[in-house]
Design a protein around this nucleic acid. Sequence first.
DNA 1: AATAATTTTAGAATAATTCTAAAAAAGTGA
DNA 2: TCACTTTTTTAGAATTATTCTAAAATTATT
Lengths: 128, 128
Amino acid sequence: MCMTKYEREIYRLITESTGHMSAEQVFHEVKNIYPSVSLATIYNNLNKLSDAGMIRKISVEGSPDRYDRPAKHDHMVCRRCGKLMDVQFRDLTDVLKSQMNEEFLFYDLKVYYICPKCRRKEEDGTVR
Amino acid sequence: MCMTKYEREIYRLITESTGHMSAEQVFHEVKNIYPSVSLATIYNNLNKLSDAGMIRKISVEGSPDRYDRPAKHDHMVCRRCGKLMDVQFRDLTDVLKSQMNEEFLFYDLKVYYICPKCRRKEEDGTVR
DNA sequence: AATAATTTTAGAATAATTCTAAAAAAGTGA
DNA sequence: TCACTTTTTTAGAATTATTCTAAAATTATT
């Protein structure tokens, strides 16, 4: 067998969902289908998939790691709530290559902002 | 008093050193000067300084947060050992602004590569 | 000096993740 | 199919990084 049922299910969840799920969220989803699954299995498989380059691990300070489809894209991160949003900026590979002599594997671009929801809250005055 | 002795010392360490120190490393350095300092104080002050924008917190998956001078610059990250290196690519602020309608606060660009040390190890054949 | 506010401390608590060793499941070959 | 090897899963302990807590110490204010 090529992929175990857990690998398959986790891969499907990460790539078909709107993405950005934490290990804990994946755990709850998988539990709906295979109630006996353990959290260690989720971590095992998330690591295996991300080592194999089939999914992508995203870490943002202050929140648990999240997992995303592997296709190249960038992220907007809300400075307040940590919410991630996919965004596709112009590809920088060539620009970066021309500015360095070393080879590189890939790059990770995060643009920090205040998401509409948090901005509204701040404008309400109550929260800061 | 404007800054406590710990704030002052920690700020100095982060901004004058070659940077990229973890809380634990800062702790050991500060301990040399003020042997009674506790780790909680280090975290308190690192957070205070980074909330105030006086230092910058960098998080890379798989390693503890590190702290850096606040001046705008980018990072190369070794995919194997996690070592950080400062690098100054062309500023992207305008390029990014022109590609989105929202305002943003700042961006974070990390370029992943294999550092010379780790590359050498891999070429030796022994380690993979 | 008396009081109030801030900072520091030690250690407990929490959160995220990895490790461990045993059990279960899957794959292999005679 | 049976015996055996390999891989995967499991539960729970262990680890790591960080925050929280409440008391003690220090600093500032009246």
